[in-house]
Amino acid sequence: MTERLWPDVVMHVVSGKGGTGKTTVAAAMALALAREGRRTLLIEVEGRQGIAQLFDTPPLPYEERKVAVAPGGGEVWALAVDPQEALLDYLETFYNLKRAGAALRKMGAVDFATTIAPGLRDVLLTGKAVEVVRRKGKGDADAYDAVVMDAPPTGRIAKFLNVNSEVSGLARVGPIRNHADLVMGVIASPTTAVHLVTLLEEMPVQETIDGVAELRSEGLPVGGIIVNMTRPPMLTPEQMAHATAGTLSVGEITAALESCGLGAHEDAIVPALLREAADHAQRVALEQRERARIAELDLPTFELPLLGGGIDLGGLYELAGILRDGGMG
């Protein structure tokens, strides 16, 4: 079995540029971590209900729900954190103030705290994740073996996680500040890892490189890079060199097409195949360049293939298997 890359990490934060499939990767990761009868919790913080759509369940309430079982008896639970509910939750847990909630809501204070007050929203969201991480179940065991957070995109991730500096403008001292310190203590510790999802394209890779630098400069623990939706080269390097140079043998291709019964439209088909081959070679070359840039980061890297039929539950298990084989979990 592959050595586990992050045996001590309890909280896995997954970020990535928009469109890279970070929700899918987070879900696959939660499945991968639920190996051998373990329990993982997948947390969503952006109110998109992306998890419910992936697992084909009704929209998730502010409540932990089992969404999938993993091979070997493990379980994946999911929670969609809503900042307003998280605030009332927080008030109840720390101040026993649940009943003040309605009054606060009426005064517009809940809206203020969760949408306007700078940084508060993020402390509430990350705070909920930290509460789950620290929670104990039966017999003082951790309630969950691992928590995976589908976090905001790379451009905002460092700021989102660095709740300390976020609330410092608002609260230099006081309970909120103390709470932020506690949350930060968990997030910046070796039990947390921030993973970034990218595609083999210039812009997402650049954002990943910038994101890693930013996370490091803020003292946040960087985990691995997940390269999503990769497509293997369909041609050999030699064939691609010929495709690029325009020296693939038209005669050979024509003869082969005729021999397999596709000779009818060969005047149209051959040039199309040649164009597609050149296009493919160009894309593979660009991907190689981006792959090299990712390698320079010198971080554990996973590659997940583009699944032909789109993502369904079966696809998630497949991706989870690849992550597990690569040392996740």
Binding site: M234, L235, T236, Q239, E252, I253, L273, H280
Partner: peptide
């Protein structure tokens, strides 16, 4: 092999 690869790519 070449044409087969091209057809699969297509």
């Amino acid at each position: 092999e070449l044409t087969s690869a091209l057809l699969q790519l297509h």
